[in-house]
């Protein structure tokens, strides 16, 4: 809009209650639309501008820093109860840009774009020299650990056969040499004890996800696998508009949305593009 029309923004303080409220709505939106990785929590509001919006309302333009929590995106635990991933666990931060519309006292996210980045190995080493560091999710040791853990889980589990859905996080422990892997599984229409051909097992229409943590330790003459899984209640799928950007299999999730053109009235229905960055 030409400046001659007098459209100007205001800049409340970043900790102003109205800005904090809009930021929380933005972070909730981010978490509701994540399909991979972990929920993020608000850490700091970097910048805030408030633009008038015609014919009604205001648009909050926010720059926000987030931190990864230990709750997976599919974990129903409320964000307030999700612990922040500590530096010693190799923390991950997110940098987000949001546009939030305030109209009729309702806050609606118009645009969301986030990039997440793991802390540097050097910073983790400053905290402790033997902290396990993140390693790529496609590392053969990681994939092997997840598959071995899932096989062990299915062998000891009464009920549905579970399939691997996502490897979410992986770290290497130097001594004793072990691989820590967190992964997501989902129930199929097969019974675990009766499965002969896993490729014939299909995920249930009403998805039932589980979140597993495993430690695979190298031993003399073999390996030892410890695995614990939490199976969540069945969840309805969050409708996801078709993405414009090709999905990749990188480990850290991000939400990115193109800004839709502002309609003349009424809250817009934002489209979501899910991408992944490291």
């Amino acid at each position: 809009v030409p400046h001659s029309l007098g459209l100007v923004y205001r800049q409340p303080a970043c900790d102003d209650p109205e800005i904090e409220k809009a930021a929380q709505v933005a972070v909730d939106y981010l978490n509701q639309h994540l399909l991979h990785g972990y929920k993020h929590t608000l850490n700091q509001i970097d910048k805030a501008k408030v633009w008038p919006r015609r014919p009604f309302g205001e648009v909050y333009e926010l720059e926000i820093d987030t931190l990864e929590t230990t709750c997976h995106a599919r974990d129903p635990t409320p964000l307030a109860n999700c612990p922040v991933r500590q530096v010693s666990q190799h923390a991950v931060e997110g940098d987000c840009d949001f546009h939030v519309l305030k109209q009729d006292n309702q806050l609606t996210v118009l645009h969301a774009k986030c990039h997440s980045t793991p802390d540097s190995a050097e910073d983790v080493r400053k905290v402790c020299s033997d902290c396990p560091l993140l390693i790529p999710l496609n590392d053969t040791r990681v994939v092997h650990a997840a598959q071995a853990a899932l096989a062990a889980f299915n062998a000891r589990h009464n009920g549905s056969y579970f399939k691997l859905v996502e490897i979410s996080r992986a770290q290497l422990v130097p001594l004793p040499e072990s691989t820590l892997v967190e992964f997501v599984v989902a129930a199929t229409d097969c019974v675990a004890k009766e499965v002969i051909e896993p490729t014939n097992c299909n995920l249930l229409a009403e998805k039932q996800y589980g979140f597993c943590k495993t430690t695979l330790t190298e031993k003399l003459g073999g390996e030892e696998v410890a695995v614990t899984c939490t199976v969540f209640h069945t969840q309805p799928e969050v409708p996801q508009p078709q993405p414009d950007v090709a999905k990749t299999a990188d480990p850290i999730p991000a939400v990115e949305q193109p800004a839709p053109a502002l309609p003349s009235a009424g809250p817009p229905a934002p489209s979501v593009t899910l991408g992944h960055v490291m």
Binding site: Q11, I19, N43, Q44, I45, D123
Partner: peptide, 27 residues
């Protein structure tokens, strides 16, 4: 036309409007 409500008024305390407080820790 841009306002800076966090800036100090005459005799008032200087408040830095942005960035806001760090809730956990900075990387």
């Amino acid at each position: 036309k841009v306002t800076h409500p966090g800036a100090a008024g005459p005799g008032g305390p200087l408040v830095r409007p942005c960035p806001g407080k760090v809730r956990h820790f900075k990387l």
